[in-house]
Amino acid sequence: MWHYTNTLHVSSSTQSRQQGEVAGGVVSGSVGTDSPDLSDDELFEVLSNRRRRYTVHALEETDGAAEIGDVAEQVAAWEYDVDVEEVSYEERKRVYTALQQSHLPMMDEAGIVEFNKDRGLVEPTESLNDIEVYMEVVQGNEIPWSVYYLGLSGVAATLTAAVWLDAWPFALLPDIAWMTALTAMFAVSAVAHTYFARGQRIGETDKPHELRRE
């Protein structure tokens, strides 16, 4: 089973937290915005849908406005796990219709994109450019980073107690050696987390992170 954790970071002086559930996983994160056109609930609702996340990913790779047909073709390729050139007319039309009639109007209303139905164009707004969307995809035999850090903290607490009590064999090394080891563990974990998080940012790679993990 796949679990999805989306964390949204918005450049703003106001910060708030929202949590919710979607089919197939868990959506959690923090959103901050001082724009009256964007609300936390709308952002989480928009990005809880895979097709809309794919749309955001496709728009992140464009420079300015994009034709809906091109976006639909790319989203369809990701959904059906084929190259863009292999997307059939029916597959493209199915995604195109859904984007035009449902998803893009919703994203436009939320202030994430500017959707011009008459011209067949969609363009990311400044609000979308200010949002960094990260997705953590965890397989059933893996653990999320939050659980990893919880376990690491437990190990650190146990080790600290053992050193403080001079328990064997921890008493064989000076306290400073164990403190250095603990610091190194958290430092290495933080570096690894930062490295993997960059690859999980929507729009950072050539294809959505969900697909790269399948």
Results as ranks from 00 to 15, higher is better:
residue 54 Y to A: 01
residue 178 W to P: 04
residue 194 T to E: 14
residue 119 R to C: 03
residue 157 A to V: 12
residue 30 S to M: 13
residue 95 V to D: 00
residue 169 P to Y: 09
residue 49 N to F: 05
residue 214 E to G: 07
residue 146 S to A: 12
residue 174 P to L: 06
residue 99 L to I: 05
residue 6 N to G: 06
residue 167 A to C: 05
residue 39 S to V: 00
residue 129 N to G: 14
residue 118 D to C: 04
residue 198 R to Q: 15
residue 111 G to A: 04
residue 132 E to A: 15
residue 205 T to L: 12
residue 90 E to A: 14
residue 134 Y to N: 14
residue 102 S to A: 11
residue 113 V to G: 00
residue 95 V to W: 00
residue 166 D to E: 14
residue 2 W to E: 05
residue 179 M to N: 12
residue 26 V to H: 07
residue 91 E to F: 05
residue 192 A to C: 07
residue 122 V to W: 00
residue 160 T to Q: 10
residue 68 I to E: 01
residue 56 V to Q: 02
residue 134 Y to K: 14
residue 126 E to R: 12
residue 164 W to G: 03
residue 170 F to H: 03
residue 103 H to L: 06
residue 33 T to A: 09
residue 34 D to G: 14
residue 191 V to D: 06
residue 71 V to A: 01
residue 102 S to R: 14
residue 43 L to T: 09
residue 93 K to G: 01
residue 69 G to W: 01
residue 60 E to T: 07
residue 95 V to I: 15
residue 106 M to K: 12
residue 51 R to V: 10
residue 139 Q to L: 07
residue 185 M to V: 07
residue 27 V to S: 09
residue 65 A to Q: 07
residue 103 H to I: 04
residue 29 G to V: 03
residue 175 D to W: 03
residue 192 A to H: 13
residue 186 F to P: 00
residue 26 V to R: 08
residue 108 D to Q: 02
residue 145 W to Q: 08
residue 81 D to N: 10
residue 162 A to R: 12
residue 172 L to P: 01
residue 114 E to S: 12
residue 28 S to D: 12
residue 132 E to K: 15
residue 187 A to S: 09
residue 147 V to M: 09
residue 18 Q to R: 11
residue 160 T to S: 13
residue 111 G to S: 04
residue 165 L to N: 14
residue 45 E to A: 10
residue 130 D to M: 13
residue 28 S to Y: 05
residue 161 A to F: 11
residue 148 Y to D: 02
residue 103 H to M: 04
residue 46 V to L: 07
residue 99 L to N: 02
residue 202 I to V: 15
residue 102 S to V: 13
residue 182 L to Q: 12
residue 203 G to Q: 09
residue 100 Q to C: 13
residue 90 E to C: 04
residue 3 H to T: 06
residue 105 P to C: 02
residue 49 N to V: 08
residue 112 I to L: 15
residue 16 S to W: 03
residue 132 E to I: 15
residue 158 T to W: 10
residue 70 D to E: 15
residue 76 A to E: 04
residue 136 E to G: 05
residue 206 D to S: 11
residue 43 L to C: 13
residue 67 E to G: 15
residue 50 R to I: 08
residue 195 Y to P: 01
residue 190 A to Q: 11
residue 44 F to E: 01
residue 213 R to Y: 10
residue 135 M to R: 14
residue 148 Y to I: 02
residue 22 V to P: 03
residue 201 R to Y: 06
residue 199 G to H: 11
residue 205 T to V: 07
residue 103 H to F: 05
residue 100 Q to F: 15
residue 32 G to M: 10
residue 177 A to I: 12
residue 68 I to P: 00
residue 145 W to I: 07
residue 94 R to I: 00
residue 190 A to T: 13
residue 63 D to M: 07
